[in-house]
Design a binder for these strands. Structure first.
Lengths: 198, 198
DNA sequence: GTCTATATCGAGATAGAC
DNA sequence: GTCTATCTCGATATAGAC
């Protein structure tokens, strides 16, 4: 059989391109203001062809969420290579600060998506966003527990809420410096938590 | 002249009713999923008549923001009656915790609105949301400054970001308990800030 | 000032040729 | 599997009677 890969877009990675495009465009424009045409254009796929891969717009939103979930998995897998849990947590904060410009412009991808999806009456997808946030929460909790700290769940909540808060403020005020300032505060906080453990 | 007040809706408080309805419905459903008809229905005003008071949907969003701004002004005016700044700040956190059920269901009215408006390409309204958030930021900064603390602006940012973070998390995870837990943490934080000042 | 009927337009989704 | 043309519907906004 001849492998009839089209020259314009070799192979059938169209689904992946559409998924990546959905994640990116929805992050920038929000769910409601993003049209299928916007995503198709970014993915360089004809509009009508999108429906071969995704039956509905909601399927594309779901795909965008999966993309964010994947990115989060990669990130935590990377961080897990670091020897100690405190270093992992501080590195996480460092990653957030490094992405300050994106956060100041468009907010946290998952957080802003959760806000939008929670406004929907038709349930389902909003809980998907919550699930992704919970993955981060659970990972952070494991680190705090490994450090032998009391109430690791509360600490994880404080950390992730801190991230969501600083992302929202940086986004609303369009000021990346907020990520830097609040990131530094979170780092100091992590240090004080473990100051008497060493 | 006879004061021809209609029996169904006495006087011309329709504008106010529409403004209140816009604030409430937009908080619940979000900007994009709220239709003029939704607002008109809630305000008990015929759809077509809305345009006599508000030329565009954006004007209604602006009105909703003004409503939130008014509520914030009333709240801070109320808090300003308390004798000391620390008491005011702790009372503010108390108000946030008291509204935990609303926050868990629909998030912070201004915060979620800011998230949605920031996704728009056509500017203008997003900065209006930012302005309202800044009012709270400035009020908090004045309290921290009155307490004689260093970097009052940073402290105000931490407080408001804390509120936005816990509101978003409570909303995404649909858990009012998050408001209680994080509210308690903010209160403890306020106490430690001023522990060596007394 | 109030309200109904409707113009207009954009977006999601589908039919069906290739 | 791919893509164009089109159906359909819902929402903003307007025209114009009362």
């Amino acid at each position: 059989m001849t492998d009839s890969t089209k020259p314009r877009a070799r192979g059938a990675d169209k689904r992946r391109r559409l998924t990546a495009a959905a994640a990116e465009v929805i992050h920038r424009q929000g769910v409601e203001r993003t049209t299928i045409a916007d995503i198709a254009k970014t993915a360089d796929v004809p509009v009508g062809n999108v429906y071969y891969y995704f039956k509905t717009k909601d399927d594309l939103i779901q795909a965008a969420l999966s993309e964010h979930e994947g990115a989060l998995s990669e990130l935590t897998a990377e961080l897990d290579r670091l020897p100690d849990p405190l270093g992992r947590l501080k590195a996480l904060v460092g990653v957030w600060v490094d992405q300050r410009d994106l956060a100041a412009r468009f907010g946290c991808p998952t957080g802003t998506l959760a806000v939008e999806l929670d406004k929907r009456a038709d349930g389902g997808l909003d809980q998907e966003a919550a699930r992704v946030i919970r993955l981060l929460l659970d990972w952070a909790e494991r680190q705090f527990r490994a450090l032998g700290l009391a109430d690791p769940g509360d600490l994880a909540l404080t950390l992730v809420a801190g991230y969501q808060g600083m992302s929202l403020m940086a986004n609303a005020l369009r000021d990346p410096g907020i990520m830097t300032r609040e990131g530094a505060r979170l780092t100091r906080w992590l240090d004080t938590l473990t100051a008497d453990v060493s």
